[in-house]
Design a protein around this nucleic acid. Structure first.
Length: 275
DNA sequence: AAACCCGCCTGAGTGC
DNA sequence: TGCACTCAGGCGGGTT
């Protein structure tokens, strides 16, 4: 599941390989992935002739700045972008194909079909981004801000960390890693965290997301010809996916439970619910 | 406003 | 073996 570090890695890959390229024609093989003012027909009609000027990232969203339009795109669970020769065969999971004038394709590949590419007029971009209602990214997070957000929430802290309107960019993997580093139980009610715990979460989210960006994100499964697959953070994971393995701090086996409808890994000794 | 539910999808995992 | 069934999982939209 691509989170901020993985999406940033994808962004850098796109920047390196696709900036300046012009779209010749477009094929959409699964309509629900594409959103445009006039639907898929509008998308297919307007993309030819567009050149990619820049790619930005906000939280887990990619912003593609084309000549006259912009995309707000999300990879959701398994979305990938491929940059491959047009002659390469199209597999069953590539749903949006942009044929470029350089003889290559930019293909959006997504096994689950959960991802989205939302095309907007450039003058609508700012408004569309605001409508995403995203909170600050970890690097801009402050203890005062987070404390204010937690005070009025009674749900488990894990669920709040996954709420993109509170913090943008954290998903299930890094939420578990942050809580492990901060020694906070995922089910601890948000409004019962102590000030030192809130500070620890802020510090841990900045350190962990920053480190993960540096090493290209986390690669859980390997794919070929995809952007953002060269991550190395998996070797640093302390909690996520380590069910039954000893905690690096105390040796207690890591447990997995369901919190806010998400699989959650934690050390039952280091991370205890308190009153 | 906060929090929950559903739908979107399909491969992996489970049970028999 | 092979088949039927269940479920994860981020987000948007709707409801309580």
């Amino acid at each position: 599941m691509p989170e901020l570090p993985e999406v940033e890695t994808v962004r850098r890959g796109l920047e390196k390989l696709v900036i300046g390229k012009e779209v010749k024609s477009v094929t959409v093989l699964w309509d629900n992935i594409v959103q445009a003012p006039g639907g898929v027909a509008d998308f297919v009609h307007r993309m030819p002739g567009q050149s990619l000027l820049s790619v930005e990232r906000i939280g887990k969203f990619l912003i593609f700045n084309w000549t006259d339009v912009a995309w707000i795109a999300h990879l959701r669970m398994e979305g990938k972008y491929l940059y491959v020769p047009t002659t390469e065969s199209v597999d069953a999971y590539s749903h949006v194909i942009l044929h470029l004038t350089d003889g290559y394709d930019l293909r959006y590949r997504d096994v689950r079909k959960f991802g989205r590419i939302h095309m907007v007029d450039k003058n609508q971009l700012e408004q569309a981004i605001n409508a995403l209602n995203l909170g600050p990214e970890p690097k801009d997070l402050t203890t005062v801000y987070l404390k204010g957000k937690l005070e009025k929430r009674k749900r488990p802290i894990k669920g709040v960390l996954l709420d993109q309107s509170v913090i943008a960019g954290i998903g299930n993997i890094y939420a578990d890693e942050v809580l492990y580093a901060a020694k906070v139980h995922p089910e601890q009610a948000a409004n019962t965290l102590t000030d030192p715990e809130i500070q620890a979460i802020v510090d841990a989210s900045q350190a962990i997301i920053g480190h993960a960006v540096e090493v290209g994100g986390t690669t859980i499964r390997s794919y070929t010809n995809a952007f953002g697959e060269n991550g190395h953070y998996q070797q640093y994971l302390q909690a996520y996916g380590r069910t039954g393995k000893p905690c690096a701090r105390c040796g207690t086996p890591i447990e997995k439970i369901s919190v806010s409808q998400r699989g959650s890994h934690f050390c039952p000794n280091c991370q205890k619910v308190h009153g």
